[in-house]
Design a protein around this nucleic acid. Sequence first.
DNA 1: TTATATGCAAAAGCTTTGCATGGGT
DNA 2: ACCCATGCAAAGCTTTTGCATATAA
Lengths: 150, 150
Amino acid sequence: MDATLRDRWLERAEQRLAGAGLRAGAARTAVVELLAREGQCLLSAQEVTDRLRPEGVGSAASVYRVLDELFELGLLHRLDGRDGIARYEIADPERHHHHIVDEHTGEVRPFTDERLEEAIAAVGERLGMRLTSHEVILRGVRGRSTTSDD
Amino acid sequence: MDATLRDRWLERAEQRLAGAGLRAGAARTAVVELLAREGQCLLSAQEVTDRLRPEGVGSAASVYRVLDELFELGLLHRLDGRDGIARYEIADPERHHHHIVDEHTGEVRPFTDERLEEAIAAVGERLGMRLTSHEVILRGVRGRSTTSDD
DNA sequence: TTATATGCAAAAGCTTTGCATGGGT
DNA sequence: ACCCATGCAAAGCTTTTGCATATAA
């Protein structure tokens, strides 16, 4: 867990939430703090709710509402999975990653790639669009493009 | 509509479906033919069902089943939208595109970019993964990265 | 003839919403 | 005090599944 990232996001989140005239209730506070700690990789509403249960706060409704609020404020990235479940992770302007899924294990690994980012920016330019967000999902299996295979 | 693409896909689809020991019923035939014609851009199960209604075939259940079959056989790409709806489009090995969404209008435009593809292939190499599929979604607004804004 | 495809209706699963209550500011 | 946040339960939606029937091979 990246503590710098956590603190930076937490501060920005609280700023922006307050700035939007929203109030800090128990559920929202718990969700935000959980995300700051454990939301650096993808988390579903269900997972958030489950991890909050021990604390005795965070109904499904509140979790969904808070997650959506944070997303709308640009504080979270959102990915809609093949399984019909939305997953969120904290959005940090200075740090940016994408995901690669192992088709065998289902494991999701984050990665960053400068060349990929440049290519994407160039596409936006070429198409005459100012990009507000983008997402890349790679799927594959272990092992390079040799002929071996599984 | 690209007739070459349509015919190539149709042929490959029928081959692969037959090869999998599946039978050609009325619903599947209708779905496959519709996709060959109009499935070059994203289409939801609902949209497929609606367009098949005049023909009097294609219940929701059958459409979902056929769509999933085709996807599992690698004949369709699948994208899970923000709205919780899955959309499909025909997969052509020789042609490959991604999508850019206009945040104002919701309009989805397909695009291709060689440099982007190369960057993605390089990432797979670097991470030691043989890529089986990948998707890129860009979101933005009209106008280049000037300071104007929307 | 025999296994598969189809359609209807019911069920399942994620997410949203209505409403009364509790809690920030 | 005022208004927002919360939680429960019900509703909404897309997608899946069970089952009887029709149909391809």
